[in-house]
Computed example of a mutant assay.
Amino acid sequence: MRKKGKKREFHVKWENYPENQATWEPEENMIDCHDLIKAFEDTNGSSSKVPSSSRKKRAAPADAESDAKETKKVRKESAKRAAPTDVTPEPPSNDDQGGDEQDLAQAAEEEAGDDVPDITYLKHDELPKEIHDLPTWDGLVELEHMEQNPDEGSDGPDADRNPIVYVMWKEGEGVAGQRSRHSSKDLIEKAPKMLLQYLLNHIKFRERKH
């Protein structure tokens, strides 16, 4: 016998049929079999019951239920923290960007200024008398660069319109390792070979057309 819901079913072996063809029949279908049912109950007891599949499961212990609720709560809070926010940060204003760019530019200039050595050039008249008395400076000086004379556009009688030449002294009493600046007119007299060689190295000749 077994129970299906609140109803009982009996495993019936039919007469003249093999055991493997027995069927489960509800009690209401066995109206004419009261004697057989009573005999079964007398043999197995009227209270013989098979656990029903619809019987409720035993409730979980209180501690286990509490732990399950706590775990569910922790997972929910973790999901909230991990969820992306809908707040989009505002981009910096143009004023802020301009200020930042100016600060960066100023910092770059200051840093570059720290790397540039402070070079001092002696004027032509500041050289020692012994240097001026030398017949030539060729071999003693090395030409670094030339630039336009700031007096070139002046019409004054004392204006020097010749380019300015910057040199470094390789040798020379009292000036070795120092630098000085001169009018190209002065170097034509004192170091003509050096000046000519520099011009030849930097002049670009125009190709002759046949």
Score class of each variant (00 low, 15 high):
residue 56 K to T: 08
residue 34 H to S: 15
residue 63 D to P: 01
residue 33 C to Q: 09
residue 59 A to G: 04
residue 60 A to Q: 13
residue 62 A to R: 14
residue 58 R to F: 05
residue 38 K to S: 13
residue 33 C to K: 05
residue 61 P to N: 06
residue 36 L to N: 05
residue 42 D to N: 13
residue 64 A to I: 06
residue 60 A to T: 12
residue 36 L to S: 13
residue 51 P to H: 04
residue 38 K to L: 10
residue 59 A to F: 02
residue 64 A to D: 06
residue 43 T to N: 07
residue 40 F to N: 00
residue 58 R to I: 05
residue 44 N to D: 02
residue 63 D to V: 07
residue 50 V to D: 10
residue 39 A to C: 05
residue 59 A to D: 06
residue 35 D to V: 15
residue 48 S to P: 00
residue 51 P to M: 08
residue 54 S to D: 14
residue 55 R to E: 15
residue 43 T to R: 11
residue 54 S to Y: 07
residue 41 E to Y: 03
residue 64 A to F: 00
residue 60 A to V: 08
residue 47 S to D: 13
residue 40 F to E: 00
residue 59 A to L: 07
residue 46 S to G: 14
residue 37 I to W: 00
residue 44 N to E: 13
residue 55 R to G: 03
residue 36 L to R: 08
residue 56 K to S: 11
residue 43 T to D: 08
residue 62 A to Q: 09
residue 37 I to S: 01
residue 36 L to M: 06
residue 57 K to G: 01
residue 38 K to T: 09
residue 43 T to Q: 11
residue 46 S to D: 13
residue 59 A to S: 06
residue 38 K to H: 06
residue 45 G to W: 10
residue 44 N to S: 04
residue 55 R to I: 04
residue 49 K to S: 12
residue 56 K to H: 14
residue 59 A to Q: 10
residue 65 E to I: 00
residue 58 R to D: 09
residue 63 D to T: 09
residue 61 P to G: 13
residue 65 E to T: 04
residue 38 K to I: 11
residue 34 H to P: 02
residue 61 P to D: 06
residue 45 G to C: 04
residue 60 A to F: 14
residue 59 A to P: 02
residue 40 F to P: 00
residue 44 N to V: 01
residue 46 S to K: 11
residue 50 V to C: 11
residue 43 T to W: 03
residue 59 A to I: 07
residue 60 A to M: 14
residue 60 A to G: 10
residue 40 F to C: 07
residue 39 A to M: 12
residue 47 S to W: 03
residue 62 A to F: 06
residue 40 F to Y: 15
residue 42 D to W: 02
residue 37 I to V: 13
residue 46 S to W: 10
residue 37 I to A: 04
residue 45 G to Y: 06
residue 61 P to M: 03
residue 33 C to A: 12
residue 58 R to E: 11
residue 54 S to P: 02
residue 64 A to M: 06
residue 60 A to R: 15
residue 40 F to K: 00
residue 51 P to Y: 06
residue 63 D to H: 11
residue 45 G to N: 03
residue 37 I to K: 05
residue 33 C to Y: 07
residue 46 S to L: 01
residue 35 D to F: 04
residue 37 I to H: 00
residue 40 F to V: 03
residue 62 A to C: 01
residue 64 A to E: 08
residue 56 K to P: 05
residue 62 A to G: 07
residue 53 S to F: 07
residue 39 A to S: 08
residue 61 P to I: 00
residue 38 K to N: 13
residue 45 G to T: 01
residue 54 S to L: 09
residue 41 E to M: 06
residue 46 S to A: 13
residue 37 I to L: 12
residue 52 S to C: 13
residue 35 D to C: 09
residue 47 S to E: 11
residue 57 K to L: 08
residue 58 R to M: 08
residue 62 A to L: 05
residue 63 D to I: 11
residue 48 S to D: 11
residue 49 K to V: 15
residue 39 A to D: 12
residue 55 R to K: 15
residue 61 P to F: 05
residue 53 S to K: 10
residue 45 G to H: 03
residue 62 A to T: 11
residue 34 H to D: 12
residue 56 K to G: 10
residue 58 R to G: 07
residue 36 L to H: 10
residue 42 D to Y: 01
residue 61 P to S: 04
residue 36 L to C: 08
residue 38 K to F: 07
residue 59 A to M: 08
residue 45 G to A: 07
residue 37 I to R: 04
residue 49 K to F: 09
residue 56 K to V: 10
residue 62 A to N: 05
residue 60 A to K: 15
residue 50 V to K: 15
residue 35 D to I: 08
